[in-house]
Computed example of a mutant assay.
Amino acid sequence: MRITRVTTGVLPALGLALGLALGPAVAPAAADASPSASPSGDGSAPTEAGTSFRTATEIDQGETATASGSAGDYLYWSFPADTGRRPTVKATVKLPKSHTAQTWQVDVYDGLRRRQACQYGAQTRTAAAGTASVELACVLRTVRAWAEPWADDPLPGTYYVRLTALGLTAGDLGLPVETTLRVDSKDIGGAAAVDGSLAEPLVPGAAFRSKDGENGTDAKGGSSGPAVLSSIEPDDGWSSGWWSDRWVWTAAGAVLAALAGIGGYTLTRGSGRPRQVPPGA
């Protein structure tokens, strides 16, 4: 009976500790699985694209950007991606009624303009003659907080999207096209955490802003404000890189290990005592 009482007291304590420890980890994971920004429904989404890395149109994750162009043009957009996120780029190209077979491709580059490989997705597709549209997708690897200098891992900062057609015939060059681009991302959480972080996100370019937040120059033609990085960044700012739900799982494991040790000691101590023989037996 002594052993039975100890067992029923330890098991509920283990269950309660497990629920309290894992509860904070499960709830944020479910909340962070949604995109970092809500879709734009007020018409503020960009309606044009840049023609180079330097003129890339900035978009937020969750926005649906549109642009008109010509077959053969290079169309560029840029977006921010933070630590622990896995971005997904989706592009749709509406083609004219009359055209030959066209091959379209979407490429993604990081802040150092290194081309990033797609984990999966139709990065390149060929639209047969007369096809109304072609859809492309690229799911990047999870953005890491830190990597070796020689590695090609995606790091937090600005990412560039380039959309273009490959190997067009002379008859298709210059045909009008309509493009739609959207970037979403999934929060991977502590599974992608690493020991280390960048001093600054890879956001190229520096600009000078005046006190009212606008770019400007002083009377001598110089800059009229402190130097800042590009305005593109996540809505909630760049993460520090040190916190992840891996800390919660580590703490939960420590609590469970301690309770298991206490329970094992109590069970061993209770079973090791000599059995008391009732008087007169």
Rank of each mutant, 00 (worst) to 15 (best):
V26P: 00
A17R: 04
G15E: 10
G23S: 14
D42R: 09
D32S: 04
A17W: 09
A29M: 12
A21P: 01
D32F: 11
A17C: 06
L18R: 02
A27C: 02
G15Q: 10
S34M: 14
A25H: 04
P35R: 01
A21D: 04
S36H: 01
G19N: 07
V26T: 10
V26M: 04
A30G: 08
S36P: 00
A21Q: 08
P24A: 09
A17V: 15
P39D: 01
L22Q: 05
A37Y: 05
A27I: 12
S40F: 01
A21T: 13
G23P: 01
L22M: 12
G19W: 06
A37R: 01
A25T: 11
S38I: 11
A17L: 15
P24Y: 01
S38M: 12
A29N: 09
P39E: 11
P28E: 10
D32I: 03
P24W: 01
A33S: 14
A25Y: 08
G15R: 05
S34C: 09
A33P: 00
A29W: 02
L14E: 06
L14Y: 02
P35I: 09
A30I: 12
A31M: 08
G23W: 05
A30F: 11
A33H: 06
V26G: 00
L20W: 06
A31Q: 12
A31R: 11
A33I: 13
S36E: 13
L14W: 07
P28A: 05
A17F: 08
D42A: 13
G41E: 13
S36V: 11
G19P: 00
P24I: 02
A31S: 10
A27S: 07
L18G: 08
D42G: 04
S34E: 15
P28V: 05
L18C: 10
A31T: 10
A21I: 11
L18S: 09
S40P: 01
A33E: 07
L16P: 01
A17E: 02
L18T: 14
A27V: 14
A33N: 12
A37P: 00
S38T: 14
D42V: 06
G19T: 14
P39Q: 05
A30D: 03
D42E: 11
P24K: 00
G23F: 12
L20K: 02
G15A: 15
A13G: 07
G41S: 07
S34G: 04
G15I: 15
A31C: 02
L16H: 03
A25K: 00
A17I: 12
G41D: 12
L16G: 09
A31L: 14
A30T: 05
P28T: 06
L20S: 02
D32Q: 05
A31K: 08
V26C: 00
A30C: 07
L16E: 02
A21G: 12
G23E: 05
L16M: 13
L14N: 03
G19A: 15
A33M: 13
L22T: 14
L20M: 07
S38C: 05
L14A: 13
A33R: 13
A13P: 00
